[in-house]
Simulated scan of single mutants.
Amino acid sequence: MQDLEALKYPIGDFVYGQSFSADDTRQHISAIDELPIKLTELVGKWGDDRLDTPYRPEGWTIRQLVHHIADSHINAYVRTKLALTESNPTISPYEEGEWAKLPDSTLDIAPSLVILRNLHQRWVTVLAALTDVELSRTYFHPGSQRTFTLREVIALYAWHGEHHYQHAFRLAQRNGWSEKNV
């Protein structure tokens, strides 16, 4: 069994407080744009046996993970729009672990994959049009007691998508779930 920390953070933890260039931000927006298709290609045809497999000991199942990504990115989209339309708004945190236990976390993943595809289309449309001044707009997160610029939020959610994609991808690798074994 791999080290639990490596299973939790397959691409490492996000480092807050970094500076990001315009090119970095374009790459982050591109990663956000590509995630729904990439994720659908990986897990979209998996059966219940795979979807109900935790990606690590005491971790979420792939089904919960997909629903979590949709929940998280819906919140991120709303927070982005709040930051663009209000002056440093205080956003509402949510208990992601509790959300992952709600009845909709047992649904088929198709609704969340559709949400992600459509949500990301709208989100990326907004993100790609932001000026440098708009990328510096902020919101305050009371849970972490931090103010985030949209530039950092974009980097965080590019990381977040890849972080969870790698949970599923590496589980598939460990279990020999290659395309020919679907």
Rank of each mutant, 00 (worst) to 15 (best):
M1Y: 01
M1A: 11
D3G: 06
L4G: 01
E5T: 14
A6I: 10
K8M: 05
I11Y: 02
I11V: 14
I11D: 01
G12W: 00
G12D: 02
D13T: 07
Q18K: 15
Q18S: 08
S19Y: 02
F20Y: 15
F20P: 00
S21M: 00
A22S: 14
A22I: 09
D23N: 08
D24Q: 05
D24I: 04
T25V: 15
T25D: 02
R26E: 12
A31K: 07
A31S: 10
E34I: 01
E34C: 01
L35P: 05
L35G: 04
P36N: 07
K38A: 07
L42G: 11
V43P: 01
G44R: 09
K45N: 15
D48N: 15
D49P: 03
R50W: 10
R50H: 14
R50G: 03
L51Q: 13
L51S: 13
L51I: 13
L51F: 12
P57E: 12
E58D: 15
W60Y: 12
L65I: 04
L65V: 11
H67N: 10
H68T: 08
I69E: 04
A70T: 06
D71H: 10
S72E: 03
H73I: 00
N75P: 03
N75T: 10
A76K: 06
Y77K: 00
Y77G: 00
V78T: 06
K81L: 14
L82K: 14
L82D: 06
L82M: 15
T85M: 03
E86D: 09
N88W: 02
P89D: 11
T90P: 09
T90I: 13
I91W: 09
S92T: 13
E95P: 07
E95A: 15
W99G: 08
W99M: 09
A100P: 09
K101L: 15
L102V: 00
P103Y: 07
D104F: 14
S105W: 08
T106C: 01
D108G: 11
A110K: 14
P111W: 10
L116A: 04
L119T: 03
L119A: 04
R122Y: 02
V124N: 02
L127P: 05
L127Y: 05
A128L: 00
A129Q: 12
L130D: 05
T131M: 05
T131Q: 05
D132M: 04
E134V: 03
S136W: 02
T138Y: 08
H141L: 06
H141G: 06
S144K: 15
S144T: 15
S144N: 12
R146L: 13
R146G: 00
T147F: 04
T147E: 13
F148K: 01
F148C: 00
F148D: 02
F148E: 01
L150E: 04
R151L: 07
R151H: 07
R151Q: 12
R151P: 07
I154F: 07
I154Y: 00
I154T: 12
A155S: 14
L156N: 11
L156M: 14
A158I: 07
H160T: 04
E162W: 01
E162L: 13
H163E: 09
H163M: 10
Y165T: 04
Y165P: 03
H167V: 09
H167G: 10
L171I: 00
A172C: 08
N175P: 00
W177G: 03
E179Q: 12
K180H: 11
N181S: 14
